[in-house]
Each structure stands twice: as C-alpha cells, then as structure tokens.
Amino acid sequence: MRRFVKRLYLALILLFLYAPIFVLMVYSFNVSKSRGNWGGFTFGWYAELFRDRQIMQALWNTIVLAVLSAVIATFLGTASAIGINAMKKLPKRVILGINNLPVLNPDIVTGVSLMILFIFAFNMIGRGGLGFTTILLAHITFNIPYVILSVLPKLKQLDKNMYEAALDLGATPAAAFFKVILPEITPAIVSGMILAFTLSIDDFIISFFTTGAGVSNLSIIIYSMARRGVNPKINALSTLIFAVVMILLYLVNRMDSEKLKH
C-alpha cells in the first residue's frame, strides 16, 4: 500500500512535468488551430514553420550566436582561468567575486545594465545601435564566468609538478602547456564550452534587452509570438526542439557510458 502511494505520487509529479510538453507535441499535429477540438492529423504546421523566413533567420542567429559566443568565451575563460590560478589569494578572491556577479545577479538586471552600457557608449561615440554585435558581447559576458568555474577547479587539481616535469624533460613553456597542461584540462574546457553553448541557446532575458531592431534569436521570436497568444507553429517548433534535446542527451549519455567502458 505504501509502495503504491509512493509510486502514484512519483507518477503524478512526472505527469505534471511532462503533460504540458506532450500537449504541445500532440497539438503540433492538429489541423484545427483551436485547442479544444481535434481536427485531424497534419504536418502542415511544420511545413509552415520551415517556410517562415523570420523563424528560420532567428534559428540561424541562435546557432551563430551560440557557436561564436561559446568559442570566444571558452578561449577568454580558459586563458583567464590559467591566469587566475597563478594569482595570490587576495586578487584571486576579488576577481572571482566579480566573475560571480553575472551568475548571481538576476538576468533582468544583467540585461538592463548591459543595455544601458551599450546605449550609453553609442551615445558617446555618436553612432551605432543595438543589434547582433551587442547580443554577442552580452552572451560572451555571461558565458565566460561558467567557463572559468568549469576550468579553474581542474587547474587547481593538477599536480603542480606536472608542468615543471615537462620543463625538466626539455619542453619549452609553450610546449609544456600544449603537450601536458592542455590535454589534462581539455575535458573541463569542453564541458565549459558545452555549458556556454547551451546557456546561449537558452537565453531569452539578456538577449531581449540587448538586441536591436530586426535581430532576433529563437527565444525572442517565441516570446513575441506567445504574447500574441497560442500559435501552432510554436507547437511544431517545441516538438522539434524537444526531439533535438532528447537526441543530444542520448548521444552524450552514450558517449559517457562508452568512456566508462574503456
């Protein structure tokens, strides 16, 4: 009896978590635009989704933004993690404290503060406006702290003698870094990059405040469509995104378990 209650409770919670997503999926195949009744099965909304230039452009923007911001943030973040790791206690604490600001600050505050900065700067130099560049700068800014938080612990764990051992065996500092340190911290760099990529794809609030006329990513498009009410194209989009997420999670899991086998 108790076991049954426990299972029922878990099932109800999972139902609560998944029901809305499944409703979206099911209705993405519904002919009728209104929710209540089932008008028959169709792929029409998907076709319409792919014909929507605006959405496709936003998708492209999202991917370019995520790739660019993740790569740049990974580069800057890894370099600075290496520098921070070499710092003494006090400067290290100060830098990490500032680094944590974008993580702890509400996204909306980060968003408006960057917007103020950009517009302030544009007013000062007398030209320019919010757009792709400003979103990109914003995404890099909120991504770097996560890369640092991912790479720094790994650097701390490294045997301090490892770098010296490489020098000792005749490697120049550059060779020692690329042949010994980099291979050691690569997993942390990769997971930092994936995290940055995901955060960039998922972000709405900061993009919303730092974008300008005509430049949207998927989140911004979804928001503006959702504000106008229910739209079956969003259902189709959700279904596709959910499918992509599931496939990615599956692949990552399989890679992990394969790594464990070896």
């Binding site: 045997d159 003698n161 490892m162 010296e164 051992a165 490489a166 020098l167 000792d168 065996l169 005749g170 490697a171 120049t172 020692a176 010994v180 291979p183 050691e184």
Partner: peptide
C-alpha cells in the same frame, strides 16, 4: 638557463607522471 636547457633531470616526490 631555464630548466629545459639544463642537463639535469628531476624525479618528483609525487612522480608527476602525465596521466594522459
């Protein structure tokens, strides 16, 4: 002379082998 140009080699206390 930097360490990588000296004709000495070191065996470290914790070995410092390269795990990769």
């Amino acid at each position: 002379l930097p360490p990588y140009k000296r004709r000495v080699n070191t065996v470290f206390q914790r070995y410092a082998l390269f795990p990769h």
